[in-house]
């Protein structure tokens, strides 16, 4: 029998929710553990096997000099490096620091800022090393994660659509919340894949899957401004879980 591919799961600055999504595959977890040699997954096991690794799943963003070095070491030992979630692909919620003065932040939260060692920015993994595939979402979708693992094991390209959330509304037969109810929605500029969660409960998309390919955010902003959304609210809508994704960052800065 050929040896099973070695999988490593790594954590950087994050909420642990994307790693948890892997553990949330309750029906598939034992099969995954059969198909793969789980060589590193600190949150789930004491097993810690040295590299090289066939596949690394990386959660979290880079916020310390130590972590910037750690991701380079992981890359050097990994054949296929995949980032999972908004922190690893776009810097995450903690990238809100990129828009402010970090020294002011440390003194606001911590009594002794001198104990804290942190970078001024929270940056995606791809700012530091070559990434082979980025899985979007805050958190990632369980279905997309399973598809990605299956595809990677089979050596094929994962089926992860790059279209907008609007296409999910059409597929689900969800009435457009903006057209029908005047609710601000990032759906037209946000990548599909969550499963049409927010619009299907009558809520505007809040962009947790990050920007779609070539989004026309300026046109969407004009539309939302027409609905009466003030510039500050418009800015904050783009500036959340994918605040440092280039297209969302540029659009939020236009409304600063």
């Amino acid at each position: 029998m050929a040896p099973r591919p070695k999988l490593a799961v790594w954590k950087f600055a994050s909420c642990d929710g994307c790693q948890l999504t892997l553990l949330d595959c309750e029906d598939e977890l034992l099969a995954i553990a059969d198909a793969l040699d789980i060589a590193q997954f600190l949150e789930a096991t004491k097993v810690a096997t040295d590299g090289p690794y066939d596949v690394s799943l990386v959660e979290g963003s880079i916020t310390t000099a130590h972590d910037a070095q750690r991701i380079r070491d992981i890359r050097a030992q990994t054949k296929t490096l995949i980032t999972i979630g908004a922190c690893a692909t776009a810097g995450g919620t903690q990238s809100l620091r990129n828009f402010a003065d970090v020294d002011a932040y440390t003194s606001m939260v911590y009594a002794h800022p001198d104990y804290i060692s942190t970078l001024a920015t929270s940056t995606p993994i791809s700012d530091h090393v070559k990434v082979d595939f980025e899985l979007r979402g805050c958190p990632v979708s369980k279905h997309q994660l399973l598809e990605l693992i299956s595809a990677t094991l089979a050596g094929r390209k994962p089926h992860v659509p790059l279209t907008s959330q609007c296409t999910e509304c059409k597929q689900h037969g969800t009435t457009c919340v903006t057209v029908a109810h005047g609710i601000p929605c990032l759906g037209p500029v946000t990548q599909a894949g969550c499963g049409n969660l927010c619009p299907s409960v009558g809520r505007g998309c809040y962009g947790c899957f990050g920007p779609k390919e070539t989004p026309n955010a300026a046109a969407l902003s004009a539309q939302m401004a027409g609905l009466g959304l003030p510039p500050r609210a418009l800015r904050d809508l783009y500036r959340s879980f994918n605040a440092a994704a280039p297209e969302f960052q540029a659009e939020s800065k236009r409304h600063d």
């Binding site: 916020t63 606001m108 939260v109």
Partner: peptide, 10 residues
């Protein structure tokens, strides 16, 4: 040693 994320600040 989990890096701080500064929620209260942002």
């Amino acid at each position: 040693f989990e890096p701080p994320r500064f929620f209260e600040a942002f």
